[in-house]
């Protein structure tokens, strides 16, 4: 397997951090604390550590249970 070009890896690392930070900062100021908590939770569930495949599978299962639950309970 080929490697991610060093320049791309570096730029991505640096800027992803910036973008995610900006995103969170803006949501923090624009959403209610509850909404923010759910959004962060949803995002975390969508981001399993890349190497932990088992954890990823578990997260996927939790996510699948979680989102329909939102849909089913609050929008019956």
């Amino acid at each position: 397997m080929a490697e991610v070009p060093a320049v791309v890896g570096r730029l991505l690392g640096e800027r992803l951090e910036l973008v995610e930070d900006l995103w969170l900062t803006v949501l923090r100021s624009e959403c209610t604390p509850l909404q923010l908590e759910r959004l962060v939770r949803l995002k975390e569930l969508s981001e399993p550590p890349p190497l932990a495949r088992a954890a990823a599978a578990a997260a996927a299962a939790r996510r699948a249970a979680y989102v329909p639950a939102i849909a089913l309970r609050s929008w019956p």
């Binding site: 991505l12 800027r15 992803l16 973008v19 900006l22 995103w23 803006v26 949501l27 959403c31 509850l34 909404q35 908590e37 759910r38 959004l39 939770r41 949803l42 995002k43 979680y66 639950a69 939102i70 849909a71 309970r73 609050s74 929008w75």
Partner: peptide, 29 residues
Amino acid sequence: MAVIREMDLADGIAAARAFSLYFQLINIL
């Protein structure tokens, strides 16, 4: 989970918009 189940349409819309914003920022990046 009990709190999550309270999520209404406004929360759903906020989530859709938040992720949409996230991807558009990623596209810019």
